[in-house]
Amino acid sequence: MSVEWDWWTVEFGDTHAGRVGVLVAEPLPEPLAALLVEITEQLTVTAAATPLAALRAVGVLERIAARVGREAAGAVGDDGMSAETVATALGTTRSKALVLLLTAQDR
């Protein structure tokens, strides 16, 4: 099973994003991108075979992502990066970037 690259670029900003018209300034490091593809594939297989185990794994990943996301957003905020710069780097809106930065202040 493979992950569709169009979905991947929209969700994660792959370095191939230009091929589908998505402008993202900060691509994922290749080892992390490969790991995310592998996790997606494993979760998909697990969801089909043992849905409760997949739900448990998703919950763990959500908690990890939330914690690491707050830490990363805090580091970006500590560096004084503007919401506009963050939005461009993440391929999102200024409003969403501002929420990330403000949420990270509560860490």
Results as ranks from 00 to 15, higher is better:
residue 100 L to A: 05
residue 51 P to W: 01
residue 4 E to D: 15
residue 1 M to T: 15
residue 34 A to W: 03
residue 88 T to G: 01
residue 93 T to V: 10
residue 60 V to K: 04
residue 97 A to P: 06
residue 105 Q to N: 10
residue 93 T to L: 00
residue 4 E to K: 15
residue 10 V to R: 14
residue 33 A to E: 08
residue 46 T to N: 01
residue 101 L to W: 05
residue 51 P to M: 02
residue 48 A to I: 12
residue 54 A to I: 12
residue 95 S to L: 10
residue 27 P to N: 01
residue 38 E to H: 10
residue 95 S to R: 13
residue 22 V to K: 00
residue 98 L to E: 11
residue 34 A to Y: 05
residue 32 L to E: 03
residue 82 S to E: 10
residue 94 R to A: 08
residue 53 A to T: 15
residue 46 T to A: 06
residue 8 W to L: 04
residue 58 V to E: 07
residue 19 R to P: 03
residue 24 V to Q: 04
residue 77 G to Y: 01
residue 70 R to T: 14
residue 97 A to C: 03
residue 39 I to W: 10
residue 58 V to I: 08
residue 69 G to P: 02
residue 102 L to S: 09
residue 37 V to A: 13
residue 2 S to I: 12
residue 99 V to R: 12
residue 30 E to D: 11
residue 27 P to S: 00
residue 73 A to I: 03
residue 78 D to S: 13
residue 4 E to P: 07
residue 78 D to K: 09
residue 30 E to F: 01
residue 30 E to M: 06
residue 48 A to R: 11
residue 12 F to N: 05
residue 103 T to Y: 06
residue 107 R to C: 05
residue 55 L to P: 02
residue 105 Q to P: 07
residue 55 L to E: 10
residue 33 A to S: 12
residue 12 F to D: 00
residue 44 T to Q: 09
residue 41 E to P: 15
residue 55 L to M: 03
residue 73 A to Y: 03
residue 48 A to H: 09
residue 49 A to R: 12
residue 100 L to V: 11
residue 91 G to Q: 03
residue 53 A to D: 10
residue 67 R to H: 08
residue 50 T to A: 11
residue 81 M to A: 02
residue 71 E to F: 05
residue 71 E to H: 12
residue 61 L to A: 07
residue 68 V to S: 13
residue 103 T to K: 12
residue 51 P to L: 03
residue 81 M to Y: 00
residue 107 R to M: 06
residue 2 S to N: 11
residue 11 E to D: 02
residue 72 A to Q: 14
residue 42 Q to M: 02
residue 9 T to D: 08
residue 69 G to N: 13
residue 66 A to V: 13
residue 72 A to F: 04
residue 3 V to A: 08
residue 24 V to A: 01
residue 56 R to W: 01
residue 68 V to R: 15
residue 105 Q to C: 05
residue 14 D to M: 04
residue 31 P to N: 10
residue 99 V to E: 13
residue 34 A to G: 06
residue 12 F to I: 12
residue 44 T to G: 12
residue 95 S to K: 14
residue 105 Q to K: 13
residue 5 W to P: 13
